[in-house]
Design a protein around this nucleic acid. Structure first.
Lengths: 139, 139
DNA sequence: TATTGTTATACTCTATAACTATA
DNA sequence: TATAGTTATAGAGTATAACAATA
């Protein structure tokens, strides 16, 4: 049974890490003239063709936001919509060739940034991180 | 020397954790009728009286945003400005009594949420997380 | 009736450029 | 000249409510 103090410290640590990762992702996104959310979307859609509802859940935002976010990325030629075959209410999303390449480069750059900052992490610590996120339904 | 694959996996793990923490913080903030950024600001200002510039750096946003964010929190009676004694260009920020209480409750609620989701973490893993964020200047 | 995506609306967050006051 | 905070502006993210098409 963990103490309140331990829980508070864990929360602070996670909130600090959250700001650090957002800052790193923001810097990478900036270099590609993307917002943090757009960069996240490109990464999340890689190797998937989610519906708008699924995408909203993964990104942790309301479905009404997704419409606008996708519109802006469509305008930039990075993603495209297509109708689901079995349910005509559903739209699905896929990366264009350009979006595929951009998403891959964002991920590579993010990996390099992470490597530079957190690359000294010991294998045991890396494993700990994996466990921390492994019970995930939305990632 | 870590491999590219390892760096990519670490980046993915951190981005996943980033979304999870934001989602948790978003749920907590929602219960207090706050935005994620406002909740973060209240937590960051606790036990500090930062200048606007320092606050911008901590929050990882431009200084021009801070003006508006603070305005909205002042309007809600959660924070207040006061002039720095030694440099009359500088404004500093402190929590009001209400802001102090709200910030504390946000942190408690966040700790409870974190405890519920990640509380099973082993001590060694917790230590790993601490090391991950310890080389921090902005937290 | 319920669900999926959209639209309308209102507010917040965000950065850039130009500005005021102070150093 | 440089720095701290503000303002104006424009664009993007956010949720709520109401809606059309489909299930």
């Amino acid at each position: 049974m963990a103490t309140t103090k331990q829980a508070t410290e864990l929360a602070e640590t996670l909130m600090r890490l959250h700001r650090q990762v957002r800052s790193a992702l923001g810097a990478v996104a900036y270099d590609f003239d993307l917002t943090v959310q757009q960069a996240e979307l490109l990464c999340v859609v890689q190797h998937r063709e989610p519906s708008f509802g699924e995408l909203a859940e993964r990104l942790g935002c309301d479905k009404t936001n997704v419409t606008g976010m996708v519109d802006r990325l469509v305008r930039r030629g990075l993603v495209e919509r297509y109708p689901d075959q079995s349910d005509r209410r559903v739209s699905r999303l896929r990366l264009t060739k350009d979006g595929e390449a951009t998403g891959r480069r964002v991920k590579q750059r993010m990996a390099a940034t992470v490597q530079e900052r957190w690359g000294t992490l010991r294998p045991a610590d890396r494993a700990a991180l994996d466990r921390l996120t492994s019970s995930d339904l939305s990632g």
